[in-house]
Simulated assay, not measured.
Amino acid sequence: MNSRLPDLVLEPMVRNALAEDLGTYGDITTRTVIPGDTQYKARINAREAGVVSGMQIARIAFHLMDASLKLETLIDDGEPCKPGDVLMTIEGSAASILSAERVALNFAGRLTGIASLTAQYVELTKGTDARVTCTRKTTPGLRIVEKQAVLHGGGFNHRFSLSDAIMIKDNHIAAAGGIAPALAAVKAKASHMMRVEIEVDRLDQLAEVLKIGGADVVLLDNMSCDQMREAVAMNDGSVVLEASGNITLTRIAEVAATGVSYISSGALTHSAGCIDLGLDF
């Protein structure tokens, strides 16, 4: 999926990562061992199968280190890879390549892991209308690129921040004094441009929401598949239904088959492993 962001949005994050890695005195190993005029051609290789993400960021990392480096992306973000595939070639100063290597691979390995896990979830929902979405359970400071990786894997994004939409969760309901007061407050105070989602974990709560109105989306939290099927029947298309909670690879196909429109999983970002990528001269 094409979800490229402007480089200027990503550059500050990559610049900070490079500054963190270079420390106070820069890459002293490379500066000591490698003659400054040494030129080389390197490759980023996939050592596992997956769906690629982070090539745009890798390119930014190498070019922030040295704008004269010549880069060619052979397998771009959102495309599948297999072991042995060359994702990118980098040609120019060996010192520059080595100094940017770890930051580029840290981003690309992590994000390719997220895209690859997302693609597994999406594959298991084929034949249904359910869309797989991520959550705000992201690494602090990396949300924008982790959510971008979900798009590369064929998934969709939920809220980016607390300011994107009104999402009334169980603690909001408890603090507001119940579902009715919470929805009444939204009706009284919220902009007409703002979408509203409310979380329920029982079918009687869903019935109350449907009776009161005022919600665009209802999140079915930690419900069984039998409960979800009943919720879909009760709803009869009135609002958008989203399933969440304990969404695993072994369960998602059954959840998608219940008829819910969205399935959100924090695991896409908080539990994805890194795909093994290597840079070789």
Rank of each mutant, 00 (worst) to 15 (best):
N235H: 01
R229G: 11
D236W: 07
K211V: 10
T248P: 00
G237P: 00
M223F: 10
G214W: 13
E208H: 00
V217W: 11
A233E: 15
M223E: 05
D226N: 10
G266T: 09
Y262N: 13
A231M: 02
A257F: 07
L249P: 12
Y262C: 13
S244T: 08
G214T: 12
C274Y: 10
A267V: 08
I252A: 05
G245D: 12
S264F: 08
T258D: 05
V255C: 04
S261I: 00
G214Y: 13
Y262D: 11
N222F: 02
I275W: 02
I212Q: 07
L249C: 11
A215T: 14
T269S: 04
V255W: 10
A207T: 15
V240G: 01
Q227Y: 05
D236V: 10
L219W: 03
M234V: 12
V240Y: 11
N222Y: 07
G266Y: 09
I275F: 01
V255K: 04
C274G: 13
S271D: 12
D216M: 00
A243R: 09
H270C: 05
V218P: 03
E242M: 08
R229D: 11
V209N: 08
R229Y: 05
G273Q: 15
A257W: 05
G245M: 12
L241A: 00
D216C: 14
N246R: 15
G273Y: 01
G245R: 03
L220G: 04
Q227E: 13
V209L: 08
A256N: 06
V240F: 14
L249R: 01
V209A: 05
G266S: 04
D236P: 04
D221V: 12
L206F: 07
A243I: 02
G266L: 06
G266H: 00
G273E: 11
A256W: 01
T248R: 12
I263G: 09
S261D: 15
V260N: 06
L210M: 08
